[in-house]
Amino acid sequence: MSRGRDEVEVLAPSSLREAVQVLAEVGAEAIPLAGGSDLMVAFRDVSKLPRGFVLDLLGLEPELRGIELVEDEVQIGALTTVDDILHSSLLAAEARPLVEAARCFGSTQIRNRATIGGNVMNGSPAADSLPALLALDARVTLLSSEGPRTVPLYSFYADYRRPVAKPSELLVSIRIARAPANPIESFRKVAARRAQAIAKVILAGRAWDVRAEEEGVRIGEIRLAAGSVGPTPMRLFETERILRSELLGPRLAAEAVAVLRSEITPIDDLRSTAAYRRLVAGRLLEDFLGSLLLQA
């Protein structure tokens, strides 16, 4: 017999220590809840309710909400809201693609509630923030009673919406690389309308150490990531490799676009078609490479 929503218990730890302890004991029966923008929708279906209880994390805001410089990285607490990101001057300086992702994310109401940690743990391939984080070399820090561990975001998803975090682990923060000197960055989301929409295709990129040479443009470093084009948000390693291999010109650009189109694995679904996604992802890359040629 399924349980009704009113029968589910909610535990609300008031410290990180307490939360981790609870997860160590009964993590497998719990669903951690932050801003609820995904989970409260899921809970409309009683089969999506937890077997045990809901772990309300908002009591941890003093410890887990905020954006700060830590050593050479920007650390974003897991309970930082998307609206916090949108209005962060630190991120405006260090992580433009992430701020752009926040700008086109959901609506005011959703940006106010949705947390970056919730986004990462929910792991939707269409999440606006995740390609941006991937392009910024994000690493996530998980904490359990046995201590912290850090996982690069590109290896965080085993499969469709399956993060590698264990039930005993809590996502506490995300760290991203600071902006290098003179970065060339892009975040493009393609969706059915200009607000309050779920992405059909996302492409995020950051390149630096880009120099114009006589025969073309040399890309020193580049990060590319895409959303809604596979079971998980994807870092485009193959495409990056090709782009670092030679001078950028029309030939290499065309080759990179071809590699990107083979690297992604889009599907037909209710929001778009595989063909459109493949086509547009490639054109977004062309566009980005065009801006590299212009700005180098």
Binding site: V10, G36, M40, V54, D56, L58, T108, Q109, I110, R113
Partner: peptide
């Protein structure tokens, strides 16, 4: 839409626990 601690939210997504 309502304000929760002065912040605009969709009240259909806010559990009473919070």
């Amino acid at each position: 839409s309502v304000f929760l601690d002065g912040v605009l939210v969709c009240s259909c997504l806010v559990p009473m626990a919070q």
